[in-house]
């Protein structure tokens, strides 16, 4: 039974077979449960506290009408947005890290978050726009950055080193441009823009996260089911993957597009929340202890991280709510330093 000691296999008499890693499924399931449990806790907390059983009852449609209003109209959309943003960032981060073969290669390092931010700042500063301009700016900015990076890196260069370097350069340029746009803004707009740049879940409703949920529902299966195995082959280098019959350029283009879209829609919903895309795949892979992109566990881990960060953000300073991006930024920054110090010996960073 070589090669299958860590795998579960289901075979049908018709010659069909499915292979899966039980440990990865357990990790993914565990993270999902944790995310949902934290979500319930989060829904139950606030100025009008509710016990977790009450929350669950209300969510199932059997709660008191007053509870129902608070839960379904105010708090559930926020938690739902958090879950979706976390999952999208985790998935996008896992794809990027796998494609560039570096644990730091997440969309916030490679210019895509900055691109989304540029779009939003342009929307806020130049058009003085509201919610729709912000969301559209985020998606448009992210996508344009994706096209730019792909064009500069070149069709054959969209991997590893070249993609990283181009991404870093574009990120630096866009950071400068964002700073400039910020100086052009009125101070009230600037404050709003900085809040958005940090990443916040305040007052999010289904209208904010709707597009993201659609994107997740469409792109998630595409990535997980159809590209997952090819992505695993790509980790061995282009030549090896090519030798195994992976149409590398097509697969990579699909994956890049999906990751950029996921990151951009997540940014549209909650702003460029820092470091979830970086740390979720890393934490997930530490738990699954298997090589490979670990896409599903990373997505679930991202959701759990995001909800946990929002919980901390609301509770850390009583009477003072922080934007969720501050929490992920601080935690992620610490994690990054730890990663830099410990992982450098292996030469992977």
């Amino acid at each position: 039974m070589t090669g299958s000691s860590r795998y579960g296999v289901i075979r049908t008499p018709g010659g069909l077979s499915l292979r899966f890693r039980p440990r990865a499924l357990v990790v993914a399931g565990g993270c999902l449960l944790l995310a949902l449990a934290l979500g319930v806790l989060l829904i139950g907390s606030g100025d009008f506290p509710m016990s977790p059983p009450d929350v669950v009852r209300t969510l199932l449609g059997n709660g008191a009408p007053a509870d129902s209003l608070i839960v379904n109209q105010i708090r559930l959309p926020r938690v739902g947005t958090a879950l979706a943003v976390g999952a999208a960032l985790g998935l996008a981060g896992a794809i990027f890290q796998s494609l560039v073969r570096n644990p730091l290669g997440s969309p916030d390092m490679l210019g895509f978050s900055q691109g989304a931010a540029t779009g939003v700042l342009a929307g806020i500063v130049l058009a003085g726009g509201g919610g729709l301009a912000v969301a559209g700016g985020a998606v448009g900015g992210g996508l344009l950055t994706g096209v730019l990076v792909y064009a500069v890196a070149g069709r054959h260069g969209a991997h590893g080193q070249r993609l990283i370097l181009v991404g870093v350069g574009v990120a630096a340029i866009l950071t400068g441009v964002n700073g400039y746009l910020l100086t052009r803004a009125k101070i009230t707009d600037a404050a709003r823009a900085v809040l958005w740049l940090t990443g916040s879940l305040d007052g999010r409703d289904w209208g904010d996260s709707g597009p993201l949920l659609v994107a997740l529902a469409v792109l998630g299966p595409v990535v997980l089911v159809f590209c997952g195995r090819a992505l695993r082959m790509l980790e061995m280098g282009d030549d090896a993957a090519h030798g195994l019959g992976v149409p590398i350029e097509r697969v990579r283009l699909i994956l890049l597009a999906a990751a950029v879209l996921l990151a951009s829609f997540a940014a549209a919903a909650a702003g460029p929340v820092a470091f979830v895309a970086l740390s979720a795949p890393q934490l997930a892979r530490r738990l699954t202890r298997t090589a490979g992109p670990n896409l599903l566990p990373a997505a679930c881990m991202g959701a759990a991280l995001m909800v946990a960060a929002d919980w901390v953000a609301q509770r850390a300073f009583p009477g003072h709510q922080l934007p969720v991006g501050v929490v992920t930024g601080l935690l992620g920054g610490g994690y990054l330093v730890w990663l830099l110090v410990t992982e450098r010996r292996t030469g992977r960073i």
């Binding site: 570096n102 730091l104 900085v194 820092a274 991006g325």
Partner: peptide, 20 residues
Amino acid sequence: ARLALAGSALNAALFSYVNA
């Protein structure tokens, strides 16, 4: 590339702190 990426990540972390 690795060093540049490490720097970019540090930049992101530090600027998110400055933003906060």
